[in-house]
Write a protein that binds this DNA or RNA. Structure first.
Lengths: 210, 210
DNA sequence: ACCTGAACACCGTTCAAGT
DNA sequence: ACCTGAACACCGTTCAAGT
């Protein structure tokens, strides 16, 4: 076939196919050959659009982070409410694509959407009266919490098998085998509880600064 | 060579070598052939001791989690102080081996040390008077925060290059290029700030239960 | 510029063969 | 039981060749 008159691929098409594959079958399913096959081309074709597979995954990660709503840092919302709304949007964006989170959580690097996110939360906190050092730590701790919550379900981390929890070894885990079936309620409840606690705790620190 | 009179390998030796390799060169450096070479044997030999590479990594993850101190849940420490001490030990254990965290954060599964940890924190919170549902959420949210903080440095996620942060695009990131060189202070400060906020926020919820 | 097949140096895992 | 080499079906990436 060689070069077609109209390109078969584009960065956008490749990223979309890669994200679909990550979501359906996990990060390890994304091989250059497999991804190329989904797109109807041969493996090396991808290297006309991305220099390495890592650069491709960077682009995938950035489209996920680009979904996070940042408007609350510029529309006059008070800082504590802004953090809550932002954290929910941030978690929703990441939890929709959990298999890319380990990759994405390595930091923004040079990814534009990651940097915009860091810029927005830092700027929002500074404008709300937090000293820069505190603003940095708030951005960091929120990323810890959100990335950790999207990285893997707490509830689904337990096996769905009562015999896995010997009462002699684990006296308090008698109900743990029920966690997987309540996955969404447990994980969202824990996220909301933690988010509430984090923001309440920050409010105490904010008062001390006055 | 075939079978030696005394086994060349053991699960313990394999796990120790794998952990060293993960720490020095990252998870992707741990291939069966490479690991076997470090141990002076051929690749397939590992399959006499572990059924799959994943089972081997499970064992590596479990030795890391086994380092976490759980004594504060049984020595009469009050719940809030116990959570703080536990979280610090938990984070220290994971942050010492950051490359295994994405694997480990998928949940305890059937790993004994992971289950002991879940059992201890849940039992500790229930014994302190938290209702079981709250105790579950506390365990989950602490895992989110600790795993997220150990998964990747916040500070090192930024590139060490002033020109990477165009003021037109990122008006508040003028100092971001300095973050990597203060990595430890920034990350530990953010962890301590977040931990304080989480526990203070939980204390408010605890009061409401009375 | 953008695709191809061939090639290189790797993977995880299975298996028959050796002691 | 526990090691080996050979083999299978994969990897990421490079590169010369094609239009």
């Amino acid at each position: 076939m060689a070069r077609p008159r109209k390109p078969l691929l584009s960065r956008e098409r490749i990223v979309a196919a890669a994200l679909a594959l990550v979501d359906e079958e996990g990060l390890q399913a994304v091989s250059t050959r497999r991804l190329a096959a989904e797109l109807g081309v041969s493996g090396p074709s991808l290297y006309n659009h991305f220099r390495t597979k890592d650069e491709l995954l960077d682009a995938v990660a950035d489209t996920v982070v680009a979904q996070v709503d940042l408007s609350m840092f510029e529309d006059g919302t008070r800082w504590a409410d802004a953090l809550v709304r932002w954290a929910r949007s941030y978690r929703a964006a990441l939890a929709a694509h959990p298999h890319i989170v380990p990759f994405l959580a390595q930091g923004p690097g040079r990814r534009p959407a990651g940097l915009r996110l860091a810029d927005a939360v830092f700027g929002g906190m500074v404008n709300a009266g937090w000293p820069p050092g505190h603003a940095t730590r708030i951005g960091a701790m929120m990323r810890y919490f959100v990335a950790g919550s999207a990285l893997g379900s707490f509830a689904r981390g337990f096996v769905d098998d009562p015999t896995a929890y010997d009462p002699d070894d684990y006296p308090h885990l008698g109900q743990a085998h029920l966690l997987p079936e309540h996955q969404q309620r447990v994980d969202e409840g824990a996220f909301e509880t933690g988010l509430r606690a984090l923001v309440d705790g920050l409010a105490i620190q904010y008062e001390r600064l006055r």
